[in-house]
Simulated assay, not measured.
Amino acid sequence: MAGVPGRPHVGAAGSPEPVVLSQVTKTYGRGEAAVQALRGVTIGFSQGTFTAVMGPSGSGKSTLLQCAAGLDTPSDGHVRITGSNISDMSEVQLAELRRDRIGFIFQAFNLVPSLTAEQNVELPLRLAGRKPAKRDVRSALSRVGLDRVGKQRPSQLSGGQQQRVAIARALITRPEVLFADEPTGALDTNTSGEVLTLLRETVERAGQTTIMVTHDPVAAAYADRVIFLADGHIVGHLDNPTAKAVIEQMTRLEG
């Protein structure tokens, strides 16, 4: 897939960056058993852009996503989300940040089996102590093309429909940043394309900042920019990527 028309320019002068990592290092374990997953990573993600994060197995891409989203704490360095240094936050403040300003989409969907699609979409608002407006929930499902499945439970939906419910749930709070961890990893090619097109549209229509970890060059080609990691370092990037260019870069990294 070549460049998508209407993409915002990445890294334009003065453009805000709702997520910034500064010299972030993450070490797991101690002594001889210590493993450095990230090694002094510095990067910013501009508002209203779609970034894919790629790299060989063990490169640190999932750790980068977790640190950027406030799900894991860096061993050193700083992460700023929507202007706030998360290192200075209490667990309660972090939970509020993740609940109110950040959306998450995972490969496994993470829907509650006993709840209907509508109830799953409502869940973040209910956890925040807010009463969901039925019209907002239905509108969220409509945006992802699921107008008629609101009363159905996850077991009654296809994998692609479940992922769309997960996207609607992630967007219901109107988060400033959307994090996606292998969101199409459990889907077939056609369904993956539908989900990626939906993520692309959230960037273009709503100015959503989206950061996605993926191993799929075709998925990465939907992004404005691809960041490549190896051994915990950022080792390259591609703007307006194509699947072919991503494959070539990954081949060099894995060679």
Rank of each mutant, 00 (worst) to 15 (best):
G6C: 06
G6E: 10
H9L: 06
A13S: 08
G14M: 14
S15R: 07
P16Q: 01
P16T: 02
E17G: 12
P18A: 00
V20M: 04
T25E: 13
T27N: 04
R30V: 11
R30N: 03
R30E: 15
G31V: 15
E32M: 11
V35P: 14
V35R: 15
R39V: 12
G40W: 01
G40C: 12
G40K: 08
T42G: 10
Q47P: 05
Q47G: 03
Q47I: 01
V53Y: 00
G58L: 08
T63G: 04
L64F: 14
L64T: 06
L65D: 00
L65V: 00
D72L: 03
T73S: 07
T73I: 02
T73M: 06
G77I: 05
V79L: 07
V79C: 05
R80C: 06
R80W: 08
I81Q: 14
I81S: 13
I81K: 10
N85Q: 14
I86Y: 04
M89D: 06
E91S: 06
V92K: 13
Q93V: 05
Q93L: 09
L94P: 04
D100S: 10
R101M: 10
R101Q: 15
G103K: 02
F104G: 07
Q107C: 12
N110Q: 09
S114R: 12
S114D: 09
L115N: 13
A117Y: 08
Q119V: 11
N120P: 02
P124Y: 08
R130T: 05
A133C: 12
K134D: 15
K134V: 12
D136W: 12
V137L: 03
R138Q: 15
S139Y: 09
S139N: 11
V144W: 04
L146E: 05
L146M: 00
L146D: 02
D147T: 15
D147Q: 11
R148K: 11
V149A: 14
V149M: 07
K151Q: 11
K151W: 13
P154A: 08
S155V: 14
S158E: 05
Q162N: 14
A166H: 05
I167K: 02
I167M: 02
A170E: 04
A170W: 01
L171K: 14
L171V: 13
T173P: 05
R174I: 09
R174G: 01
P175A: 06
E176Q: 08
E176N: 05
V177T: 03
F179S: 03
F179P: 01
A180W: 06
T184G: 11
G185W: 11
G185S: 13
L187W: 08
D188K: 06
T189H: 14
E194C: 06
E194H: 13
E194G: 06
V195W: 03
L196G: 06
L196F: 02
L199T: 03
R200T: 05
V203N: 00
G207D: 14
T210G: 09
M212D: 01
M212A: 07
V213T: 03
V213H: 03
P217T: 06
V218H: 10
A219V: 00
A219W: 00
A223Y: 04
R225A: 01
V226Y: 01
I227G: 01
I227C: 04
I227F: 03
A230C: 12
D231L: 02
V235W: 04
V235R: 09
G236K: 02
L238A: 01
D239N: 12
P241I: 14
A243W: 03
A243S: 08
K244I: 13
I247L: 11
Q249A: 15
M250A: 08
M250H: 09
E254V: 07
